[in-house]
Amino acid sequence: MKKVITQGLVGLTIFLSSWVLLNQIDWIDLLEIDKATAKTEIKIGELYWDVFKSNEVENKDAFVNKTIDSLVVKICSRNKIDREHIKVHILNKEEVNAFALPNGHLIIYSGLILASDNPEELSGIIGHELAHIELNHVMRKLINEIGLSVLISMTTGNGSTEIISQTAKLLSSSAFDRDLEKEADLKAVDYLINSKIDTEPFANFLYKLYTKENELQEALSWVSTHPILKERATYILEYSASKKTTIPEMILAPQSWKELQEKLN
């Protein structure tokens, strides 16, 4: 019996130590798994963007795009986010909504810009969506909801347009789970602080949507897809207060903000 136990323990030790040793090698890098994943994400991002591009009207106004871009650039440059990776698209739609697609596509509806009272509020939402992109929430959500096999079949051209359209709705009109939303909110606060943007308007915006929620539930998709607004506004304020902040800077001249709103109205 003693021999069996000894040999069993030796076998187990060989197995576990081999596992630990093999774990020391960076297989993801060696087998270029990340590169393959990145290629899949690029393809999926294009597929989804094509759905929105063909169904919605993209705002091509140079001033509108330049102004929104200036906010995105500010957040990206102060947070070491690769600006080249972020592809901002403004769509003319009344819905108060913004969302991220795979491969850094950031969709902002004109309704959201119009619902914001100042550029800081809008920056908070942009920061939140950038956080979803940077934290890889988008691909994680897709894999979670529809599975890697379906995603891969989509990139190889075997996915039906029906699946792509259905899952596109999933990205634009359903929330991430609570933990991911909170993670993105807090990351957005970090982004705003690093960019010297006041964080309070971000919380205010959520609180404002919360109070309007009952009146305008139909029109405010960002509200229905991002629940527990009051709770979120509270923890954003608490988290901001716990952080050492510098005096916020003006991010957009009032005249430019006014002009932006007028152009979209």
Partner: peptide, 18 residues
């Protein structure tokens, strides 16, 4: 990994090789 939310990790590759 194929049908669920898990991703490919070093741990997984090491285990499969083993």
């Amino acid at each position: 990994i194929v049908f669920g939310s898990e991703g490919i990790t070093n741990n997984y590759v090491a285990y499969i090789i083993l």
